[in-house]
Design a protein around this nucleic acid. Structure first.
Lengths: 194, 194, 194, 194
DNA sequence: CATGAATGAGCCTTCATTCAT
DNA sequence: TATGAATGAAGGCTCATTCAT
């Protein structure tokens, strides 16, 4: 799968998709951007749909690395969640041009099983990360004995909602701070002596 | 603008978009659904883009009526927010087939100023509703003296995030309850004696 | 069905198919020949396949008119069959450039149900014509009491086989005479006092 | 030409052509079926056209062995022709999946000189066989003094026509019997005392 | 106001063929 | 001999948009 040519084409597709959106981009444009022939795309991908899926797969991949690292940290869960939010905010900042892409993908969910599985998998992992973090907090006595599932769902929803808000108001200057404040508000509901 | 023919076409467009999505729907299909001629669509709308915008305008409109009513209520803010969540959940349940449509719109935000304004306006109103509610709570002593802006943003983000989650996991049986639990968690961070 | 535009497109398709064959002809060429836009073809025909079917339908149609006329004649069956062969030979002569077309169609029979039905129908009618003629001959005492079915099948086979032979040896000068001689040979097996 | 690799490729091509037809088959499929590399095909054949020609050459080749054997037989010509028909019917039965292939070839005749020569040669041999048989019959007094050429042409046409009929009506159960009946009818026109 | 026949640019995809290795 | 990655021309088809009536 990490074939050099696959990489090259997916990279180009990401760039073109960022510029024009998925539906407005033609295979010709991707081909031109990648510097390969049109036929080659169909040698490595079954069609445009498959290429889109590959692009999304690639875009979803890196987000979970931060989570994995933080899961094994020693600091307070609150601190680690705050660090996560900061890292995530930086990530989103860097790939902000990709946000519309995600929404295009989300809009396919009802009609594309592969895409649905891809996205569902990503969200399951994210939720799992939050749940584990909350459980760590409860076990260590940092958090009160709340329902970890509800907390995880709320944290995830908060994250997603903030991204959406950010997409709609790109002029917000200090998005990272806003995200942290929201997180802190929610943490207040989780912390023990509060 | 509220011409009877305009209405007829937009209604048909909504139905077709629900069935197939915005990009997969052709003007021919909408025309057939509306029972009008193709030329008529171009008499009332400048093009497909304008039609999509009209459709979204219509879809964004009604959601805020509940909010307006609750804003003038007498019960505790917590109760009214809970009621809002229930009403909203019921609404989303009813129009769940439209969710992908919204995402298609969101994906246009970067390249369509009209759409951006439309959506931004909607979110501004939503946020305003939450902010006013929080302020009411603070004034009445129900909520502690927190930052109303942050609270409003968080409530809005929570709402959006939950919708997205629901879209991705349509099998979730009791979505309304889940939403209420998340709201309660956040309320815990806002209530005075907690 | 006999829409003026349909006619126009089918006519053009016949001409292009005659020049290049079915598979070597592109829709663009047909469109250019017909002097209409590409989209129009797809307004009247579901696709290239459907267009080919329409072409064949048209080509099969006229052959049966002669047969119908001869069926109601008063002369001896032998004479009328001879006349049929002459008329048919003239017809084939005129449309000789179309013969490869028929073979292209025949080669589709296994993978195209519509085409199969079309051709089967044509052959059923032809056979019916020959059977009725033979029966007329038997009833009138011109022919001996033979199996009309076998005779019809043989006449039909003879006709098809001669066409094929002619296609393969276009240089044959007097094809009509050859066809008549073959018919006479077969008639010898059918006539009473022989 | 009878190189082992050539054989291997042509064999594979025949199998693929039988499954999908000439035009619907890609070089890739033939290559996969043959288990060789794509480049190799172009090493042994100038292109797809040349490969098709090689395939047809192979398919036309074996049919004449029966004829040769029967030509040297001692039995009555009628009997031998009947035997020929039976053998031929069995042959066609066995290779019925190839019939569409022949029609695809026939449709190329007008635009492919090589193919034309190939087919013409085959038919010349077939006709020659029938002519010799008829002449044997005339010499031996079994047949009346008819025009051997006309008789041969008729026999050949009958054979071809019957094959075509069979291709179009694959459901015909006893094709061999039908063929024999048709032959007998024609023989009636050739036999002396009739 | 209203129609719907007509347009044509543009898209995705296929596939015979080549060539560096 | 043999490979198979790479090519790119060409094809079928869609669909937003126009315009004569």
């Amino acid at each position: 799968m990490p074939h050099v040519r696959t990489q090259q084409i997916v990279d180009a597709a990401v760039r073109v998709f960022m510029r024009k959106g998925v539906h407005q981009s033609s295979v010709d444009e991707i081909v031109a951007e990648a510097g390969v022939s049109k036929g080659l795309v169909y040698l490595y991908f079954k069609g445009k749909k498959a290429l889109i899926e590959a692009v999304m797969k690639r875009l979803f991949a890196p987000d979970l690395q931060i989570a994995q690292r933080l899961l094994n940290g020693n600091e307070a869960v609150s601190s680690r969640l705050q660090e996560y939010v900061r890292a995530f905010a930086a990530d989103v900042e860097r790939y902000r041009a990709l946000l519309p892409l995600f929404h295009e993908c989300y809009s396919m969910l009802g009609r594309n099983r592969r895409m649905r599985e891809l996205v569902a998998d990503y969200y399951a992992r994210q939720e799992s990360f939050f749940r584990k973090m909350v459980l760590q907090g409860i076990v260590s006595g940092e958090f009160r004995a709340c329902d970890a599932e509800t907390a995880a769902v709320s944290l995830l929803a908060l994250q997603e909602g903030l991204i959406m808000r950010w997409m709609m108001q790109p002029e917000t200057t200090d998005w990272s701070a806003q995200a942290e404040e929201s997180l802190n508000l929610l943490l207040r509901a989780l912390l023990e002596n509060n």
